[in-house]
Simulated scan of single mutants.
Amino acid sequence: MFSYAPSIRRDFPELATCVLRVDGVTTAATAAEPVARFLALARRRMAGTTEGGLPEIQAWRRAFAKMGLKPTQYRCASEALLRRLRKEDGLPSVHPLVDLCNAVSAGFAIPIAAIDLDRVDGRLRVQAASGTEIYETFAGDIEHPEAGEIIFVDAAHRAHARRWANRQSGHSAVMDRTTRALVVAEALHDGATADLVRLMAALRTSISALWPHATLTDVPVP
């Protein structure tokens, strides 16, 4: 269901990943309480510093530089969320699952992607783009990733994320129609594996409280 190309493992041996499948998602949930709790954690962690001072974000900045990207131009998803939280003291509400994942991402400073499984053809693989893949923006525009760019791609040659943890596709974003989702959390900092275990435990607890009838399945990552 989710895997990495050997080149990703070779170039980023410090990478740690946890993937959770969620079946039974609906919009009939109110995520305000857990969202407030995880955003409070994010604010505490940034007290006296900025998102760029957190080790989790620094590790992603190094990875983006290694990919040939300017880290302050292309930010990983968790850095973008923390930056918005610092500037606006809040995050926009999109969908209960997205709101929860965004808040957890901010609280742990770790990028989390929530992907609508019914919009994915076959297996998702993280790999370098050929440059011919199709990527749909949230505005509905069609783009093609640059050759060599790290993307999430499926069997239909559709990119579901660009620049790795930078931009998710509008095609498979979790929306009102979503009933099945794949939640992917990735980290590169020292202690990433232990932090991902804590993150996933917190996420599982919150999802189970919001959607008591949902089925949660840990997805092995080769």
Score class of each variant (00 low, 15 high):
108 F>P: 00
159 A>D: 02
85 L>P: 02
158 R>L: 04
42 A>E: 02
121 D>H: 12
71 P>D: 04
107 G>L: 00
155 A>L: 06
215 T>S: 14
47 A>T: 03
210 L>A: 08
16 A>I: 08
171 H>R: 13
114 A>L: 01
88 E>K: 10
18 C>S: 14
105 S>I: 01
194 A>R: 13
7 S>V: 14
142 I>R: 07
170 G>D: 06
52 G>H: 14
57 I>V: 15
65 A>N: 02
68 G>A: 03
96 P>G: 14
73 Q>E: 11
157 H>E: 11
208 S>L: 11
97 L>P: 00
3 S>F: 05
169 S>A: 10
39 L>W: 02
208 S>C: 10
182 L>E: 06
64 F>N: 13
206 S>H: 09
139 A>W: 07
111 P>Y: 03
208 S>V: 04
170 G>V: 07
82 L>D: 06
205 T>P: 04
210 L>E: 03
73 Q>F: 02
33 E>D: 12
85 L>S: 01
124 L>K: 10
180 R>F: 12
56 E>W: 06
149 E>Q: 14
24 G>V: 14
123 R>N: 11
154 D>Y: 10
23 D>R: 08
78 S>T: 03
42 A>C: 05
111 P>G: 03
133 E>S: 08
70 K>S: 10
78 S>N: 10
8 I>S: 04
190 D>Y: 09
114 A>W: 00
19 V>N: 07
66 K>Y: 09
126 V>S: 13
204 R>L: 10
122 G>C: 08
212 P>G: 14
41 L>S: 09
75 R>Y: 10
136 E>L: 13
27 T>P: 11
158 R>Q: 12
20 L>N: 02
137 T>D: 06
113 A>C: 10
18 C>K: 14
217 T>L: 14
45 R>M: 08
4 Y>D: 05
143 E>N: 02
109 A>L: 01
73 Q>M: 07
33 E>G: 12
72 T>G: 04
115 I>N: 01
165 A>R: 05
101 C>I: 01
174 V>G: 04
170 G>S: 05
163 R>E: 09
137 T>Y: 09
179 T>C: 11
42 A>L: 02
202 A>H: 05
146 E>D: 05
24 G>E: 06
145 P>V: 09
47 A>Y: 07
213 H>N: 15
72 T>L: 13
162 R>K: 06
148 G>M: 11
152 F>E: 07
216 L>V: 08
93 S>C: 01
16 A>R: 14
192 A>P: 09
83 R>H: 14
190 D>V: 11
81 L>M: 05
10 R>V: 04
130 S>F: 07
179 T>L: 09
66 K>R: 12
81 L>P: 00
212 P>V: 12
168 Q>E: 05
135 Y>L: 04
4 Y>A: 05
177 R>K: 07
89 D>Y: 02
95 H>W: 04
90 G>H: 01
83 R>T: 05
194 A>I: 11
110 I>M: 00
66 K>A: 15
115 I>R: 01
203 L>G: 00
